[in-house]
Amino acid sequence: MNIIEASNLEYVYPDKTLGIKNFSLNIEESERVVLLGSNGCGKSTLLKLFAGLIKPMSGSIKIFEKDVIRENYLYFRKNIGFLFQNPDDFLFNPTVEDELLYTPMQLGFSEVEAKNLIAENANYFGIEKLYEKPPFRLSGGEKKRVALACVLQLNPKLLILDEPTSNIDGKTRNKIIEFLKEYKGTMILSTHEIDFVKKISNKVVLLSPDKEILKLGGIELLEDIEYLEAAEIL
């Protein structure tokens, strides 16, 4: 089953800034894809397109072989976990417990069901002691762990992570890597960190500063200095 089928995608922001152009990619079930590129090459835009949060200006995209239309939104929300780059944007509830309850409650779970659901992830990420705290009072690493626990509430089939290891300490980073290694679903993430890519992915998409695909391949692509320099990663 194709999880993502993207063909000739183009996205332009309202201020006419080009987000991505001429982008085609198929992602199959259980693939672990990394979008690698310099700042501003369109990684975050692509991830939002893959999550069905924004629509392309031209080209077509299917997620779980379904069109990105309103009727499919609920299905997408239940099956896609999206971690934003900046946890401050992602966490908007009064307390950590409210954050964890938000998605299951929003998707129609009862309060008791939702509370049972959040306990396991909270325990795994060591955030159960933070339940009463307002999210903005947490440290960077704590925010990231809370955000990740929120994303994983419903065991999404597709996990989309926008720079999951940026601005965090080594301990949190290792915890995230440990989790991602064990994760069985399909995963798409963006990062600048080559060593991190080597640990968790099996497919690499190199994006050029011109916001196009530069090269597609396995992790052996990370040994090709010429391409990495062209992508302005090195």
Binding site: L53, I54, Y73, I80, F82, F84, N86, F92, L101, Y102
Partner: peptide
């Protein structure tokens, strides 16, 4: 701009123009 990002985050987490109710 941040407001837009937060709104997208809300949507990605299941927001459907209704807030959930607790007992």
């Amino acid at each position: 701009e941040r407001g837009e990002d937060i709104h997208l985050a809300r949507i990605s987490r299941g927001y459907n123009h209704m807030a959930y109710q607790v007992k």
